[in-house]
Structure formats: structure tokens, C-alpha cells
Design a binder for these strands. Sequence first.
DNA 1: TGAAATGTTGGGGCG
DNA 2: ACGCCCCAACATTTC
Length: 466
Amino acid sequence: MPTILWWIRRDLRLHDHPALDYALQRGRVIPVFILDEALLKNDAPYRKNFLFSGLRDLDAELRKKGSKLVLRRGEPLVELYRLVQETSADEIVALEDYSPYARIRDERIAKSLPLRLFAGETVFPPYMVVKSDGTPYTVFTPFSKAWKALPFVSPSGLSLPERFPSIPDEILSFPFPEASSPEGFLPGETEAINRMERFLAGTVGQYAESRNRLDQEGTSMLSPYFRFGMLSPRMAVSRVWKLLQEPLLPEEKKGCETWLNELIWREFYISILYHFPHVLKMAFNPALRAIEWRNASNELEAWKAGMTGYPVVDAAMRQLRATGWMHNRARMIVASFLSKDLLINWQEGEHWFMQWLIDGDPASNNGGWQWTAGVGTDAAPYFRIFNPVLQSARFDPHGLYIRKWVPELRNVPEQYIHSPWTMPVSLQSSLGIHIGKDYPVPIVMHHETRTRVLEAYRKSQKTYTS
DNA sequence: TGAAATGTTGGGGCG
DNA sequence: ACGCCCCAACATTTC
């Protein structure tokens, strides 16, 4: 009976897993995770904690079935080579990982070891969703049309065996690193599936509207689970397709379609990064690569710390630091503020998000930043500039989100909560909140920065065309 | 998956 | 009654 190493990377699940299904059918499965030493450095603490506690959860699930997760540390190629020798494995299976780093790594490994890859990070692999001439889509709407036209196959529903093959004790396995899962995000596929079912049973009905509300829990909050493959995207799409076939209120139908679209956006950006890996280094739009970004480290620091003087921006940036998560609408607002109002290179924000986001993923994060900065594929036109005060009033009408994350403004009346610097001094005194002392004066004025950024973008375009 | 600037319309106050 | 002005409300265009 052949021995097969199941190399786990960003697919911490047992359900709907083509590589695992294959391995279980073919022989004795040894689940392995290889901890790259680079991962142990002191960055991305929330994401790392979520991953580590996710590994523990997966190990616990495997132990219930008589197996376990073998944890190794070091260079993947070296460790896999050793493992193949130790276990006399015949084959290594894994899910395709489409990030540039992973593709290079896997290609190298496949040259010297029997590595067999299966699709599963996305519903459709990025090389499948292409135009008839084979070139990739760079605009979302045609991409999503082509995506929806591809033949969708629901997860096989293969039931997993009660018992997995046991793992011989002599296989070296490191102890799991200490980690506690970030607040609000229990790790693991059971939690992921429960969350999705709760979402589909309720919230999705108002999703089209409520997903934008900063003061409500209107989003699915599933991103960390997709990030680590604790939830299969194909499973999610299968569930939402099924729901769409049931009789639904117009609002519910709209909610389901909007959520499906979000799942397709995820695949769109995975596809963009797959076909255009250079977007990690520069703007997708060549005409906007020559923008003269401001070098304003004090303003960048104020943005990072949530001390810009714009309550909605500060609330969001503090939420990120405190929890590792930020509401999607808030991500757009703070990204627009950094790139447009402060005219600071969006890549600074991209890196900061990767450092702190529990769901940080190069494809979605880069895609989102390029979109907001207006320099990416199918990007918001660069002159589409968010007014942080209007966004705040529209999506946090009573200032509840602000009050939660910027407690020094807790008692500011609704009328002034989005722009506290407009409070009369007498009111500031009676509330005991002095703008400039207890909470910052805005570091820039939006109406002034608008013209500045428009000029900078225009200049880059002009340089490019001439 | 905007917002600001500019243009148009129509009702009401008023001489 | 009529024209004029103001301005809010809405529409269009511009960035």
C-alpha cells in the first residue's frame, strides 16, 4: 500500500479536499505541515496565532480519527526530502497555491520530488478563467461572466472514513508553537462551516445593504477561514447556488448574489496576481507608476496609530491593531485616506495591512489597495475620492463604530461625531474634550488634499503619454 | 463599491 | 397679476 504525504499549506480542512480524497483512496496518508523558519519571526502576530491555533485544531480533528498532524520546521524542500526518506513515501500531494512565492517553491520541489498538485484554493483555477484567446481578464465584470459560465461541480460529498491510517511514532514531529486564537475568531473548519451556515440562514438576507454598515455585523466575517482554507470556496459557492434556487424575497436574492460576487472578487484578484505577479512591486496601470508620493513619515505614523483626527479613519485603524480585523468598508475608507488625502504610497498601507490583518493575503490585499488607490485593474477611477466625513455619516450614522474604537469621543453628540473639530469651543469645554488636546486636530483638510492628489495623478499620466 | 462643481427647475416671497 | 429674486431640490458634468 503506497504511502502519501499530504503537504498542508493554506488548506487546513478535511472537507471538500481533492488532494486528501485522492490520498485516502490511494494509500496511507501522512498529514504534514512545514513551518518555515521565516514564519517564526516577529511579524503578522494575529495571522500567525490564527494559523498556529488552526494547526492545533486540525491536529485534534485528525487525532479523533486515529491520525495526527506531523509538524516539521525548516526549508520545505529539505524537510520533504527527509520525510520521503523516513516514511518511504511514494508521493506528495497538495493543493495548488497560486501566490508567486508558492509557485516558485512548488516548481522547484516538483523537479526533485514526486509532488502532485490539485486545484482547490479557488473554485476555478486562474488558468481556467481566461478569454477565448487564452489571455487573462483584467476587468471584473467579464471575468465574473466567464467564471459563472464555467461548469460548476458541487463538492463530491465523499464521506471521510471514520479512521485514518495511524502515524508511526518514529516520525519526528515538533511540538506545536504556543498560540491563542485572536479574539472573535475561533480556528478550524467546524467553526468556519458553522459561521457560514449562520450567515446563510440570516445575515445574507440583508447583505447587499448591511455589509456596508460599520455599526452592524453585516458581513460574513469568513475571510480568515478562506485565507487558510478552513472553508472550501467550492463548498461556499455550492451552498449559495443552492440557496438561490429556493424561493427567496428579492432582498434575500440580492444578498446572495452580492455575496457570490464577493467570492468571485476573491478569485479575480487571485487570478490577477497569478497572471501579473509584478503587481506586488508596482501599479498595474503603467500610467500611474510615476506618482510622486509624499514622504511624510509623521503623517504615516498618525495613520498607523489611528491619530489622524478623522474619527472614522482612527476607529478603523485602531480596530485593526486591537483585533487583527477591519470592516471592509473601513478598509476602503482608510486606504483612500492614505493614498488620496495623505498622498502616501499605497504600498505602505499594503504592508501595514499584511502585518496586522488576520486574513492578510497577498492577492486580495494587493488587489484591494490598487483598486482603492485607483492604480490597479478595473480600478476605481483615480478621481473617485472618498470624503471621510461623508462616508462616516453614511455608514455609521449614529457614530456607534466611532464611539466603540475611539472612546475619547464617546460623549460627542451625533451632529459632531464625524467631524469633531467643528464643535464649538464652549461645547468642547462642557464635554471635557478639547480637540487638539484630548483628540487630534485633523492632520490634513480634505478639501485641500483633493486638488493636490488630482494634480499628482494627472502629472503621472501626462508623463506617461508624452 | 464618489464627491464636488455646475446647471436646471419650480415654488414662494415680495415689490 | 406679474416679474423678479432666492434658494432648495434635483440633475448633469466634471474631476
